[in-house]
Write a protein that binds this DNA or RNA. Structure first.
Lengths: 243, 243
DNA sequence: CGCGAGCTTGATGCCGATCAATGCATGTGG
DNA sequence: CCACATGCATTGATCGGCATCAAGCTCGCG
């Protein structure tokens, strides 16, 4: 069931579900489907320490990365040097898709905590997709899902105030974590207030104040990076507030 | 050279370059590459009047659309009903990619002016891609390029003030139009101030004031929707301003 | 012509940025 | 073990940019 390339040792994590990594899923499915001339994906797993860099903007693109365990962030760098967190990536996410367009990575990827990723060569993946219509469809869906996710974030940035942005961010994280077997009422943020703020177009002080307001309103119990949801409907209501 | 499905009549447009529509490019390339068993794409062209709707959020996804002539916008609708312009689409752009993920369109698409689009069935396209590695790579690049574009817009919304957002928006439009043979120093906006504002996370009054400031600074000559660039470097400078 | 959609400009207020100080947890070396 | 440094979070005071409300203005069109 599990792939020989991605074992679950080395990194201890609260709940690493089997095949959380999309690369592993891909490779597990592969022998079952490829009946003609099987292509072996030369995937390798890679260990990352906290703050370790997976790839860098401008570097040559050659691999996609599946998050097996841990969490990462991707950061875009504007021409003037300002950095911004483009997204956070949980187990099961596929990283590096933005490098396909130009052949060089368009953002930096850095681990928020000790993490385990699976690297799959893009050329080999393309060859495999060409042979496997099922996987071709799967891959296009993954890219499309990323587009939809980005549109959601754009709607936060474009039309919501601080509290609503943070509420939606938390609800989004909850949903994604829950999809991988984590609790639906508690979460441990692996990123700083500053990183959250950078992602949401806010300053860290504003994020902190929003957390305090949520706690005062009885929506959350906040203890540093440990968050417990006390009033989910209330949080949803804040997330849907119009100016 | 040109495809039988997408002729250039019906819509008169300043400069419709041959094969501006990606669907047409696709179909023109097809016979040259597909030597084994050719798959014929059942593409159809579709005429859209100003404010005509191409597809609607929630509607079943089945086709991708290449913009042959004219301009369109896509709008996301938040759960609370607020609408936001997700993007503007020029000749040569491919629309509907966000529907692949879930099988239903994630946004509305509406024509800003009389337009001509080419609809290609997604299932047929997938079949074709499976046979044509070149086209598979091309399609993945198109999706990735859209991801990179969205990341750029996110960086505008998250980290820039009104003037910088508008400057970057104009520079982006110029670049895209120039890539299709239009002038690099003048452009005619097909969208209202309100639509620009919605896309940039600003109110229409703020967009209007920014235009006025640009004109006062000698960067632009603004006449309603006719924009002429007077100082490109100055505009770039505004686009890179830090708070 | 008169209507209306879209654009411009002004006055005012609020939200979030900014500057600044403090608190709190972790880690490190004496 | 303590003293100290460091990174991160919280809270307060103040300021500025953009939203908001409101009033004309322009232009296209029936």
């Amino acid at each position: 069931m599990t792939s020989p390339f991605c074992t679950e040792d080395e990194i201890s994590h609260a709940a690493v579900t089997p095949l959380a990594c999309p690369v592993c899923q891909l490779m597990a499915l592969q022998p079952a489907v490829s009946l003609g001339r099987p292509i072996r994906l030369q995937a390798t797993r890679q260990r990352l320490r906290r703050h370790g860099q997976l790839f860098q903007a401008g570097a040559q693109f050659g691999h996609l990365y599946g998050v097996h365990a841990g969490q990462l962030k991707t950061c875009t760098t504007a021409p003037d040097g300002r950095q911004q967190v483009a997204g956070f990536h949980l187990p099961g996410d596929l990283l590096g898709l933005d490098g396909i367009a130009s052949g060089t990575h368009a953002c930096d990827a850095m681990a928020l905590e000790d993490s385990l990723v699976c690297a799959v060569p893009y050329a080999g993946l393309m060859d495999l997709l060409a042979q496997q219509p099922e996987m071709e469809r799967w891959f296009c869906k993954v890219m499309s899902a990323q587009l939809v996710r980005d549109q959601r974030v754009m709607s936060w940035l474009g039309g919501m105030r601080a509290d609503a942005r943070l509420a939606n961010f938390l609800l989004d994280m909850l949903r994604r974590l829950q999809a991988h077997g984590f609790s639906g009422v508690a979460l441990v943020l692996r990123m700083t207030r500053e990183e959250i703020g950078s992602h949401l177009g806010l300053k860290l002080e504003t994020v902190s104040r929003a957390f305090s307001r949520f706690q005062a309103a009885g929506l959350l119990a906040v203890n540093q990076r440990d968050i417990r949801i006390l009033n989910l409907d209330g949080l949803r209501q804040v997330g849907g507030q119009v100016p």
